[in-house]
Write a protein that binds this DNA or RNA. Structure first.
Lengths: 74, 74
DNA sequence: ACATAATGTAAGAAATACATTACATTAACA
DNA sequence: TGTTAATGTAATGTATTTCTTACATTATGT
């Protein structure tokens, strides 16, 4: 995988605080990862594994497509 | 992320050979990864990054949800 | 103002994705 | 049958994800 030409946007925070209304920690628990991982993802620090992304989508009850958007950067 | 309780199934090969009708190498080229990575994914060797999964789905013109399925193993 | 919950963030270790190189096996086809 | 294309697969290295631990900052509520 190339490093540059694709950036990933997500609205985890939006949905977590909106319809889900849970804390980072609670989300992390339900998903089975750490709070720091959730925080980093919300911040867009990295490109999660597919399984992690799917589990987050499931917990938040949204489609993965609605949670993450891929965009070309050039 | 835990190692055990979720396994990932995919039908990359099915779709690649079916409606897409391209080789592993061609798919890899279009996606921007190596042939070995495609081969490993088809074999289910690992859990791809979300971006890689999305790009494969895009090239194969399917929804990511139709390409990969998550299943609990216990 | 104080206590506690929620979040930000960073350093280092551990795990694992992905690339590279290389060679072997199988499929397709002249 | 021989040649090439397609695929299998392994070893090793690099990059990146994720966890762990830890502490700081900000929000919330009394």
């Amino acid at each position: 995988m190339e490093k540059q030409p694709y950036s990933l946007h997500n609205n985890i925070r939006l949905i977590r605080r909106g319809k889900a209304d849970i804390t980072q920690e609670k989300l992390a628990d339900k998903v089975g990862c750490t709070r720091q991982t959730i925080a980093a993802l919300e911040k867009g620090v990295y490109n999660p594994s597919l399984v992690l992304a799917m589990r987050i989508a499931k917990v938040l009850q949204v489609e993965i497509v609605d949670l993450f958007k891929l965009q070309k950067t050039n």
